[in-house]
Simulated scan of single mutants.
Amino acid sequence: MEFKLLRGMLPEYDETINYSIELGEDKLHLNPLIGKTIKIHFNNTKNCIACGREIKKNTFNQGYCYPCFRDLAENDLCIVSPHLCHFHEGTCRDEDFAKKHCFSDHYVYLAISSDVKVGITRKVTLKKRWMDQGAIEAMPIALVPDRRTAGLMEHSLKEYLNDKTNWRKMLKGESTGDLSISLSVVREVIADEFKDYLIEETILKINYPHATPPKLKSLNLEKSPILESKLLGVKGQYLILEEGVLNIRKHRGFNCTIEAAE
């Protein structure tokens, strides 16, 4: 049995989202396994998804060792709070990363995963971002030239719109809200400095190989290193199993095997 590094979920947009899991250099296609019992085996070893260093205790920021969490630009505070970008202060961790990742076109968007939320992402990762969040409807509302501007616009709208997803509501299919109404609110309250970035786009509806979980128990491979259960569906970053739900992103860096049970 060969254990491989769990790197994350790989959604592919289609009429119904196609999901794969990245294990080492391999990709395991999940959709054909829905309705079958699968076995996930964690061998109690972890490695950093960036440098490969063995991790003795906890991973940081979903899959990194502490030095990579501390030093890599993709783990800086401004990634999750882009309005706090400090590039102009000369303290960016990696200017080459910033020029590629942060100084590129970004969308500000509205999406319904649990409730209507506002978010940002790079132009090249728009649909993937929505699929990662389990959004059932989404639309870009602004196109801006850099991440900091997108973050400032998003931050200005948090008084009126949520910026978090309730994973329980998302998985239970209890999503609520109306993007058209929320867009009207945005147009009424948006600051003048952001108005020129607003765009007109249609709403995209997203369908998942989803089933309502019979149990909303959050599964943890550290507590249950061998998990055998029927795969009922996939949505966002979650495997929906008869025994509960498994957040794949939370387990990045774990060395595992995943296969159909015999």
Rank of each mutant, 00 (worst) to 15 (best):
32 P>N: 07
33 L>W: 13
33 L>G: 06
35 G>Y: 09
35 G>N: 08
35 G>E: 03
35 G>V: 11
37 T>C: 01
38 I>Y: 04
38 I>P: 08
38 I>S: 12
39 K>W: 02
41 H>E: 14
42 F>R: 10
44 N>E: 15
44 N>Y: 14
45 T>I: 15
46 K>N: 08
46 K>D: 09
47 N>Q: 14
49 I>M: 10
50 A>R: 14
50 A>I: 05
51 C>Y: 06
52 G>W: 05
52 G>C: 03
53 R>C: 05
53 R>T: 08
54 E>H: 14
58 N>D: 15
58 N>H: 13
59 T>N: 11
59 T>L: 03
61 N>E: 11
61 N>F: 13
61 N>V: 05
62 Q>S: 15
62 Q>W: 11
62 Q>A: 13
63 G>L: 04
65 C>R: 13
65 C>S: 09
65 C>P: 06
65 C>L: 10
66 Y>L: 07
66 Y>V: 00
67 P>G: 04
67 P>K: 11
69 F>L: 03
70 R>K: 15
70 R>E: 11
73 A>V: 12
73 A>I: 06
73 A>G: 05
73 A>P: 04
75 N>A: 07
76 D>Y: 01
77 L>V: 09
79 I>W: 02
81 S>D: 15
82 P>V: 00
82 P>D: 06
85 C>F: 00
88 H>M: 06
88 H>Y: 06
89 E>K: 07
90 G>N: 01
91 T>M: 01
91 T>C: 01
91 T>S: 13
91 T>V: 15
91 T>K: 15
93 R>C: 01
95 E>Q: 14
96 D>V: 14
96 D>S: 15
96 D>L: 14
98 A>S: 10
98 A>E: 09
98 A>L: 00
99 K>Q: 11
100 K>H: 08
100 K>N: 11
101 H>K: 05
105 D>V: 03
105 D>I: 05
106 H>S: 07
106 H>P: 04
106 H>K: 04
107 Y>L: 02
108 V>E: 02
109 Y>H: 08
109 Y>M: 07
109 Y>F: 14
110 L>Q: 10
110 L>K: 05
111 A>Y: 03
111 A>E: 13
113 S>D: 01
114 S>I: 03
115 D>G: 02
115 D>S: 13
117 K>T: 12
117 K>H: 11
117 K>W: 07
120 I>M: 09
120 I>T: 14
121 T>S: 05
122 R>Y: 00
122 R>W: 01
125 T>F: 08
128 K>T: 15
128 K>Y: 04
128 K>P: 00
129 R>Q: 10
129 R>D: 04
130 W>V: 09
133 Q>R: 00
134 G>Y: 08
135 A>H: 05
136 I>E: 11
139 M>Q: 12
140 P>I: 09
148 R>Q: 12
148 R>P: 01
149 T>Y: 07
152 L>M: 13
152 L>P: 02
152 L>H: 06
153 M>Y: 09
154 E>G: 01
154 E>K: 03
155 H>F: 12
155 H>Q: 13
156 S>G: 06
156 S>Q: 10
156 S>T: 10
158 K>H: 05
159 E>W: 07
159 E>M: 03
159 E>K: 08
160 Y>L: 04
160 Y>G: 01
163 D>Q: 12
166 N>W: 06
166 N>G: 06
167 W>N: 12
168 R>K: 12
169 K>E: 06
170 M>S: 00
170 M>V: 02
171 L>Y: 09
171 L>T: 07
172 K>C: 11
172 K>W: 04
